[in-house]
Simulated assay, not measured.
Amino acid sequence: MKLEGKKVLLTGGSSGIGLATAQALLAKGAQVVISGRRQDALAEAVSRLGSFGKVDSVAADVSTEEGRAATLSAATATLGGLDILINNAGGVRAGRLEDTSEAEIRAMVEVDLVAPILLTRAALPALRASGDGLVVNVTSGIALVGTPFYATYAAVKAGLARFGEALRRELKGEGVHMLTVYPSGTDTPMMKSNRAGPDLGFSREQASSVADAIVAGIEADAFEVIRGGEARSRMIALNREDPAPIDQRFLDLKPALAEAVRDHSAL
């Protein structure tokens, strides 16, 4: 897909991977609307992005019916249609499952899974009308290799990944493609309260590197983008073929990992 002139709605666009992806898309000549919950953060993001191209914003919570409707309505009106929807908004709460409140679990399910499914459903008529539509779902490497203390997050991100795969096949031949992105640890505001480092399996790359990979995936009409390099690829393969060694490795890391991620929250 050529990105020049494409009309893009990107959720969670005021910081992190979303902000970096918006900048990378603008550099390719796309028109972008970013969404988020905080008007002040969006205003700052639009100011930073303005020098790269045409960008607008809409303040709304896509985990609510009203927020999704407002987001899509504002974006399509501003852009005059829609070619690409990027479901990037997300939230996380780490920790033992029995220590995670029902409200926190439901918040992850709503923002990480229900919201992108329903926003995609609502956007499909506009994407079909484009004739060259695309939905990009930003999931997580944890969707491919489950990590202790991220059980609910792994569940919703894996659910979003399979949603994208199934819908890609459902929409085959109808002018709408699906791309699933699996970032590894990324240096974003969402990760600030996570104290785990490379020794615990949480190496971090720059958000701009993930954004460049997303743009390359879009341009190549790829099915998926998996970050983390060869080490991650080997771990994914081992997890499918013989997960016992990975279980043992996490058992050895469990006490330190539990302490490092117990305050990781971005909901």
Rank of each mutant, 00 (worst) to 15 (best):
R240T: 04
R232P: 01
I246N: 01
A211M: 12
I226R: 05
I246D: 04
N239S: 13
A231C: 03
L238S: 01
A237M: 04
A207C: 10
E219A: 12
Q248V: 09
N239V: 00
V210C: 15
I226D: 02
Q248F: 08
R232M: 15
F223D: 11
V225D: 06
D242G: 04
D242T: 11
E241A: 11
I226Q: 02
E224R: 08
R249W: 07
F223N: 03
A244E: 04
R227S: 12
E219I: 03
A244I: 06
S208Q: 15
E219S: 06
G217N: 14
F223T: 02
R240K: 11
V225C: 08
E241D: 12
P243H: 05
L238N: 01
E219Y: 01
D221Q: 14
S208F: 05
R234L: 15
N239T: 00
D242V: 01
S233Y: 03
A244Q: 10
R234K: 13
D221W: 14
D221G: 10
A222L: 07
P245F: 02
A207Q: 09
V210P: 11
E224A: 14
S233M: 08
S209Y: 07
M235V: 05
A231P: 05
E224G: 02
S208R: 15
V225G: 06
E224L: 00
D212P: 04
E219P: 03
L238Q: 13
A216D: 11
I236R: 02
P245N: 03
V225E: 08
P243D: 07
S209K: 15
A222C: 04
V225H: 08
E230R: 13
D242H: 10
L238C: 04
E230D: 06
R227P: 00
F223I: 00
R249D: 02
G229Q: 13
S208I: 13
R227F: 00
D221V: 14
R232W: 03
G228V: 08
A216S: 14
A222Q: 03
P245V: 03
S233H: 06
D247F: 14
A244T: 08
D212A: 15
V210Q: 13
S208D: 15
D212W: 00
G217L: 14
S233V: 02
P245Q: 02
V215N: 12
D247I: 09
N239E: 08
A220C: 11
I226K: 07
V225L: 08
P245S: 01
G228W: 06
G228S: 12
V225S: 10
M235Y: 00
A220V: 10
L238I: 00
D247R: 14
E224K: 07
I214Y: 11
R227G: 03
V225M: 05
I218W: 10
V210I: 15
I246A: 05
D242F: 09
E230G: 12
M235R: 11
R227Q: 06
S208A: 15
V225W: 01
P243K: 10
Q248K: 12
E230H: 08
F223K: 06
E219C: 00
R227Y: 02
A244F: 07
A222G: 02
S208V: 14
A231N: 04
R232L: 10
A220F: 10
M235D: 00
V215C: 01
G228P: 04
S209C: 06
P245E: 05
I246P: 03
A216Q: 13
S209Q: 15
V210S: 13
D247P: 01
G229M: 05
A222Y: 03
E224Q: 09
V210R: 13
A207W: 09
R227T: 10
Q248I: 05
